[in-house]
């Protein structure tokens, strides 16, 4: 019972991927007449999608990667030390600070984007990479701090005290002694943040806007596909190009991705 059921589910999960892949290599007529079969395979639509002036897949990937790396680095640099202080200090004010950050996890990002436009505009950061990266980083902070603080609490405080006795300052103690032990929690957050930045649509669409000439894979796909959503020779190859590298990456890294999530969840 269990195995056949699981295999049926697997088929159901993979059918869309199959339809996407096989139709990315067919002409409109073949797609309409025989959406699930092979037949009339051609590389032409893929070639056209690759050279689409509105959406350069490689540029989209490069920009998105830059965002992912920048947001992750910044997020760790900001959230980890703050979480350390919150977790280790007995002072009431830091407990309040934790609640203050925690409240942020319940604010839907999409809803924020409108007022954020004005904040960024005031700071002169609207339509810039910096503005976008800073805002995305802030969106990661509440949950990161929550996760890190929970994790740090499980690391014996004796370790820091030993370092303090040796004369190391607080900053040094954290980065030298505690931070290296936080690897699983950091890995979890990096995975989560990577997905959320990569797949974000509203924020890059509105913050970057058409004037900047910058697009992520997601907003690029929207620009390339939405006007032509009935021309399947545009839709399928573009979608395939947008997801293929990511899927390959996922399949190779799945052990780390899934176990990263799991580790974070069990050790938090």
């Amino acid at each position: 019972m269990r195995k056949p059921f699981l295999w049926a589910t697997v088929a159901f999960m993979l059918i869309p991927l199959y339809v996407l892949t096989v139709n990315a290599f067919k002409g409109q007529q073949d797609i309409l007449e025989n959406p699930f079969g092979f037949g009339g395979l051609t590389l032409e639509p893929l070639g056209t999608a690759l050279t689409n002036p509105q959406f350069n897949v490689f540029k989209g990937y490069a920009i998105t990667l830059l965002f992912v790396v920048a947001v992750n680095v910044l997020s760790v640099l900001l959230a980890a030390p703050a979480a350390y202080v919150i977790a280790r200090s007995p002072k009431r004010r830091f407990r309040v600070l934790m609640l203050f950050f925690l409240a942020g996890t319940f604010i839907p990002g999409q809803v924020l984007v409108i007022p954020v436009v004005y904040v960024l505009k005031t700071l002169g950061l609207m339509g810039t990479i910096r503005g976008f990266v800073l805002f995305e980083t802030v969106l990661t902070l509440p949950f990161s701090i929550f996760l890190y603080a929970g994790y740090i609490a499980t690391i014996p405080a004796v370790l820091d005290q030993a370092a303090a006795v040796d004369g190391a300052g607080r900053l040094r103690t954290f980065w030298r002694i505690v931070f290296p032990l936080m690897k699983p929690a950091v890995a979890t957050m990096v995975i989560l943040n990577t997905f959320s930045v990569w797949n974000d649509f509203v924020n890059p669409q509105i913050i970057l806007g058409p004037g900047s000439g910058l697009y992520t894979v997601t907003t690029g796909v929207y620009a390339a596909v939405s006007q032509y959503s009935t021309d399947y020779t545009v839709v399928f190859p573009t979608l395939l190009l947008a997801i293929a590298p990511l899927l390959v990456f996922f399949v190779f890294m799945q052990r780390h991705i899934i176990s990263g999530l799991t580790a974070g969840a069990t050790k938090g």
């Binding site: 703050a82 202080v85 830091f94 950050f101 007022p115 904040v119 902070l141």
Partner: peptide
């Protein structure tokens, strides 16, 4: 040291999350 470690995250959080929420309220 505590202040230095907490301040950057807090400042950024206030500027880009709390201020926008307040702004949304005002708008």
């Amino acid at each position: 040291a505590n202040a230095i470690m907490v301040a950057p995250a807090t400042v950024l959080y206030v500027v880009m999350l709390i201020v926008p929420v307040a702004l949304a309220l005002y708008l």
